[in-house]
Design a protein around this nucleic acid. Structure first.
Ligand SMILES: [Zn+2]
Ligand SMILES: [Zn+2]
Ligand SMILES: [Zn+2]
Ligand SMILES: [Zn+2]
Lengths: 161, 161
DNA sequence: GAACAATATGTTATAACATAACGTTTTTTG
DNA sequence: CAAAAAACGTTATGTTATAACATATTGTTC
């Protein structure tokens, strides 16, 4: 697997996560600006909360955090912001967890393949063309035209093995 | 892809679905008997409702149907039956739809890879070792130990293309 | 900068999906 | 049959997500 296909590797606990967040925010500004979309205060807050760790975050947990700064926030507040971030490709939804995680490379919209640690909750993101192509090819052999793909792999990350 | 890896192909509308159900029921009896588990009346009813088509079925839809024969059914009635059927490997859960579908080959427990038609809702099931192995291998290269895999491919089935 | 349109957010309510907890019935086993 | 285990009934509640409509903010045109 080429290194390019790893969008977010598993990080050690000591890594400087502030710099992850800072870099993600810069990417988000760039992506929104490029798309002519507005990264409003609420959207930015939700984005930062999604990026608060490398584990997926749940909508109602985001809401609880958001309440600290914005007592008027309600479920639609969060879901609208998440829908926006999803549409711009800044976050991904982990279907098997009903949770959301920051995208490792919003510069190129993609679907992503996720490795989910069942012990610590950490998630790594890949975008391996080899997988994408094989899935598409296998589907084709059944006469199926692929629109998009969902790949979520559960197991144990390097730290937890 | 070997034909063996296709557990449920896309069927045409004219196929005899009664025979699908009949065959699935026979498989279910066999699987339960082999596992020393009981396919009770409720479990069988839920199983038949899951098999009512080749599209995934939602828990509360099952509940509504079940009510016709069993007015006392409540959400736990359905979820218990589904949990049982999942544990025995008779049905699969489609995570991206919060819905359930009959397994194409309960004789060998497996996870399955699903092709979901966005037009008609039909689902085909594969169990392609090639995919399973590639995903495992790619994960391994990130130091990740795979426990299980979720693959759901969205697109258009042969009839809807 | 006033008028208007478009976008974003507030607000209330409810829909949709799932489980906890505990009591009763049915089945199995000794 | 008695005891234990499994399945089911029942009530309540937890969790996830959206509908519908009001208000506020931002961008555009004149
Ligand atoms: Zn980090
Ligand atoms: Zn881990
Ligand atoms: Zn059929
Ligand atoms: Zn179709």
């Amino acid at each position: 697997m080429s290194v390019e296909s790893v969008l977010i590797p598993f990080k050690n606990q000591q890594h400087n996560h502030e710099s992850c967040i800072k870099s993600a925010l810069a990417d988000a500004e760039a992506a929104c600006s490029k798309a002519g979309m507005r990264l409003t205060k609420i959207r930015r807050q939700v984005f930062e909360l999604v990026w608060s760790s490398h584990a997926p975050v749940k909508a109602y947990d985001i809401l609880a955090q958001l309440h600290q700064e914005n007592p008027r926030a309600a479920p639609p507040t969060v879901y609208r912001a998440l829908d926006f971030l999803l549409s711009v490709g800044l976050v991904h939804r982990i279907e098997s967890l009903n949770a959301y995680i920051g995208c490792g490379d919003p510069s190129q919209p993609h679907i992503g393949q996720f490795l989910i640690c069942e012990a610590c909750g950490a998630v790594a993101e890949m975008n391996a063309q080899k997988i994408t192509r094989l899935l598409r090819k296998q589907a084709e052999q059944l006469g199926f035209k692929t629109v998009n793909q969902l790949v979520e792999i559960r197991g144990l990350c390097p730290q937890c093995t």
